[in-house]
Design a protein around this nucleic acid. Structure first.
Lengths: 218, 218
DNA sequence: GATGGTTTCATACAAGTGTTTGAATTGCAA
DNA sequence: TTGCAATTCAAACACTTGTATGAAACCATC
């Protein structure tokens, strides 16, 4: 049976890290949010780093599971091979849905994971290699979907898709200001469509030529 | 005449922040790197935050100047209007060149700016609005280049171009591992070509339809 | 109801942080 | 050289951080 205090700490830490980042959230902030005693953190987790590690591992597994579920559903519907846009959608959809859109729909877990992937925090950096194994599954699905595309292009496409999704979450405020509100970031499905469309187009172009567009102007 | 100590502090801070991020670089680290006394920072800058602010403003102006120079050169050659790929190249080229490629070619300034744009550090967050004015100039150049493209698509294209460039810098290690070295990140011009090509393709597709590619699979 | 392990609590601790201080040192003009 | 402002320096300051301690409270089991 999991201690009540234990999960209260995890939830509070997740919420605070998601909202304010790792830099200026202290153990005292966390225990205040969780309404528990300061010493409870070290009692239940051993140290602050171990708390962060456990939180990251737990949320990382959950996110990966969600993405793989979407992927498997898409591939099952297509007889073991899903259209590239559905593969990409499974990759970027869960995180985008968890970070954008109406407040009540956002998840602290998704925003925590974004912070964790961006801020170079010591305990997380050591574990992050596991994410590569997870991404490899998507690279494999993309190759099944686009058999004629060179493997290198697959990696670049996957990388760019994640880049666009990630940065859209992180810099949504800047894009709003820059476009003076004309870019609608509350239309989460629209954003997902855009990211998927651009990445799929890039991969589609790669299917027709081994090299990207001709270089000019150097 | 600028004090020797003053610029030594700026240089040391830039190098350390570029290499290790803001989180775990202390004033004592900086003064050790600069070979000056601890109190020199507060004497010359007033506070740590003011040091960071001055550093960010200075490097930000330099980066923006470099990008605008490339843009103006391209537009001058085209009679006030540059091809979209050259506009995009002026936007992402300087930073990518300063952050990727051979060590001796990298600039602490470029890597410092990446850190500054990623890590939510208080003194910088207040100034970062100025970057929007700078990006607006590129949005305007893109509209001159692609008169038929809807304004919203311009913003999305600019945003995605920066996203791909940024993330490629930040996650170059992951991409290397994921692709087992098959994605050549030392070929800086090749990377720039890829980013520019994908962004330009996305904008080109937008020129043919008001909406991005049809939505599927919801 | 007593017992003993588990959990909570107030408090203290050592280490590290940015900042301040006041005395030394420097550099330059009179 | 003398005088004075600008700069450097070692030391200390006030504060915050994560962690450790030992007593108190809790709680199921006998």
């Amino acid at each position: 049976m999991l201690s009540d205090t234990r999960s209260a700490i995890l939830t509070a830490a997740e919420r605070l890290y998601a909202a304010r980042g790792f830099a200026d959230v202290t153990l005292r902030d966390i225990v205040a949010e969780a309404n528990v005693n300061l010493a409870a953190v070290n009692y239940h987790f051993g140290s602050k780093d171990e708390l962060i590690t456990e939180l990251f591992v737990s949320r990382s597994l959950a996110t990966n599971r969600e993405r793989l579920n979407e992927l498997k559903a898409a591939e099952a519907a297509g007889g073991g091979r899903a259209p590239i846009d559905q593969v990409l959608r499974a990759l970027v959809g869960p995180t985008l849905r968890g970070c954008l859109g109406p407040d009540e729909q956002r998840s602290d877990a998704a925003r925590f994971m974004i912070r964790a992937s961006v801020e170079a925090i010591a305990p997380i950096h050591k574990i992050r290699n596991r994410e590569i194994d997870h991404l490899r599954k998507f690279a494999a699905a993309m190759r099944r979907s686009l058999a004629s595309v060179d493997e290198v292009e697959i990696y670049w496409g996957l990388h760019f898709a994640l880049a666009m999704a990630h940065q859209t979450i992180r810099d949504s405020e800047r894009l709003q200001k820059l476009s003076e509100g004309r870019c609608d970031l509350d239309d989460v499905d629209g954003v997902i469509d855009r990211v998927v469309a651009v990445a799929a187009t890039a991969l589609g172009a790669a299917a027709k030529a081994d090299k990207p567009a001709a270089r000019r102007g150097r």
